[in-house]
Simulated scan of single mutants.
Amino acid sequence: MTQSVDQAMAGFDPALPLAVALSGGADSVALLVASAEKWPGQVSAVHINHGLQAAATLFEDHCRTLCKRLNVPLHVQAVNASKQAGQSPEDAARQARYMAFSALAPDKYGGVAIKSIAIAQHADDQVETLLLALSRGAGLAGLSAMPAHWQRDGLDYYRPLLQVAGADIRAWLVQRGVAFVEDPTNSDEQFTRNRIRARLMPALRSAFPQFLDTFARSASHAAQGQQLLDEVAVQDVQTIARSTDGLPRIKALQGLSRPRQANALRYWLKQNYQCVPSTVQLAELLDQVADCTTRGHHIHIKVGSGFVQRSSDVLTWYNP
């Protein structure tokens, strides 16, 4: 069931000190205000200036004004969100944000002592993420949408408003008389997420009034299924791994069913190299593994940003 902002914050119990990712938009402003009220003196804000739009200065100025009024320390970090070859602008910005957040961790790059970071995605964002995943033919990992809690670079990340509707967040701010900035790019329908927001979400709301709850439930079921797949993958990777370096042995890999081979290889690539193979790449790799019955069989396949190749009796991955 969707919650109010106050209900969501009542159940939010991160390790302190807490940093709130503050864009200046309605959702992050509400999260910062609610967090600062709940933990006075234990909350700071982080504003990432991507420098990708003319309104960037307006967003930063608003964040400075708000934090001054709330008596909350503000860390402003300018990042280079230029995308690399084969990378989407959204992914480039996301990776740049993570690098900036990582600098806040204790003992990292002289960072400040932050234990947790809160990000303000809400229930509508969760459904949009699920619809994006469906449009791309994603597996269970994509259909799981966004987790409410995860860890990265020694920090705990939270999305405490995932069960709060976006409209309820804005109503909460209006009731309190708190201003926020509208991102002009949100109405640009050249971006798929914006088209989903402008065209599909109103239709879904009309046809299925409870869709925020039911779609979130489906994402939760997918996340549980993905967790089981990960547990199986851990066992299989341990079974097929060469003892000296953990590389998957081809003969041992061939002893698994094709679905378990795919699951194990996908997990091995992601955990060790942050590499996510496409469906076509993984299918080609599995075909080559199946055909690898002689010493002279050569494997060299593009996977992600690098290549999987055969080295003696194991598979390796490298990024040239």
Rank of each mutant, 00 (worst) to 15 (best):
Q3D: 01
S28K: 09
S28P: 05
S35H: 03
K38G: 06
W39T: 00
H50F: 14
G51L: 07
Q53N: 06
A54I: 09
T57Y: 01
T57F: 04
F59R: 13
E60I: 07
V72D: 00
V76E: 13
A81K: 11
A85T: 11
A85G: 01
R94H: 08
R97H: 06
R97G: 13
R97Q: 09
Y98D: 04
A105L: 09
K108N: 13
K108T: 10
G111C: 02
K115D: 09
Q126L: 13
L134A: 12
S135W: 08
G139Y: 09
L143K: 03
M146G: 07
W150D: 14
D153T: 08
G154H: 04
Y158I: 07
L161Q: 04
L161K: 07
Q163V: 01
V164H: 04
D168P: 04
I169H: 04
I169T: 15
A171E: 14
V178W: 06
V178A: 03
E182G: 02
P184T: 09
T192W: 10
N194L: 13
A198F: 01
A203D: 10
R205K: 15
S206Q: 15
D213P: 00
D213V: 08
Q226C: 05
D230G: 02
Q238W: 10
R242M: 08
D245V: 05
P248E: 07
R249G: 09
R249D: 12
Q254Y: 12
G255A: 09
R258G: 00
P259D: 08
R266G: 13
P277G: 00
Q281S: 12
L282W: 05
T293M: 05
D313Y: 04
V314K: 03
L315P: 01
W317E: 02
N319V: 14
N319G: 05
